[in-house]
Design a protein around this nucleic acid. Structure first.
Length: 273
DNA sequence: AGCTGTACCTGCAGGC
DNA sequence: TGCCTGCAGGTACAGC
């Protein structure tokens, strides 16, 4: 479900609610999300540990534990982490429940079952190999670095490249469309044909849109909610995503939709070249 | 190397 | 009402 702004919203809340809390018990309802561990082994490793820090890398939530181990949680399309009073009802898509001291629990729910929880050793973002191999955080690189990445490393259409987490971390289908609209660049444009001005506008769009979306607690286009089940508030600010056939906010034209790499891409054919 | 399509799952909306 | 199709914010992998 989520891209960087949604994952970051969840991370900020988890850091506030979970830091310093002890995981008293782990209830594995379904072990499917546990990609590198059995239910027994996972529970045994995590039970009794305290959450020391909740970080984020790309779209992955990184939960450091007092044991020196770290849980990597990827929500993929429909994963949710819900912070609830202890022993709250679970639904048929609840897979894992972390019972915490202090009267709360964290439920991991995932309708489509793409999400995962992986237990790894180490705690630093750079020492965990699954994280170290990802591309730089989209909001933590300079224009010069972005230019260098884009011009030296890649060829092909700009949108799929922006969404490739090994190239740049944080953008997904929604914000890639929004950034390209901001930059006035069509999603099918080949990176090799982009001007310096266009590259700099794409960079600028990323630096403006992602933090603004974090500020508004993400976008709930489909089913995203935070740990308290509140939707994000950025949807009314989306300029093109999900607006096929509707008037462009910037010109007299209309937003169109096409398909790139199997995903919907929304754009304004008049504003984007 | 880098594209494209497909797969992983389930639910929901829209058309007939 | 019900059946069918297409679609969904992410990624990995096979095959060209």
């Amino acid at each position: 479900m989520p891209e960087m702004p949604e994952v970051e919203t969840i991370r900020l809340e988890l850091q506030k609610e979970l830091k310093g809390k002890r995981i008293v018990q782990v209830e594995v309802v379904r072990d499917r999300p546990l990609v590198n561990s059995s239910a027994e082994k996972f529970s045994k490793s995590v039970e009794g540990s305290t959450v020391t820090e909740v970080k984020r890398r790309s779209k992955i939530i990184v939960v450091n534990l007092s044991t020196g181990q770290t849980m990597l949680i990827h929500l993929k399309m429909t994963g949710r982490l819900l912070y609830k009073l202890i022993d709250s009802p679970v639904d048929k898509h609840t897979h894992i429940v972390f019972k915490l001291d202090g009267g709360h629990e964290l439920q991991f729910r995932d309708v489509r079952k793409f999400g995962y929880i992986k237990l790894v050793s180490g705690s630093g973002l750079s020492e965990i190999k699954e994280l170290a191999e990802l591309g730089p955080e989209a909001t933590e690189l300079s224009l010069a670095e972005f230019e260098r990445l884009l011009t030296s490393k890649r060829k092909g259409k700009i949108k799929p490249i922006l969404m490739d987490q090994n190239f740049l971390s944080g953008l997904g289908n929604v914000y890639a469309d929004e950034v390209l609209f901001y930059a006035g660049v069509l999603p099918i444009r080949d990176v090799s044909a982009l001007s310096a001005k266009e590259i700099s506008l794409i960079y600028e769009g990323i630096q403006k849109i992602l933090p603004a979306a974090v500020k508004h607690r993400g976008s709930s286009v489909n089913s995203y909610v935070d740990i308290f089940e509140n939707p994000g508030e950025y949807v009314p600010r989306l300029k093109v995503y999900g607006r096929e056939g509707q008037p462009c906010f910037q010109c007299s034209g209309f937003v169109e939709r096409t398909k790139i790499g199997g995903r919907s891409a929304y754009f304004c054919p008049k504003c984007q070249k």
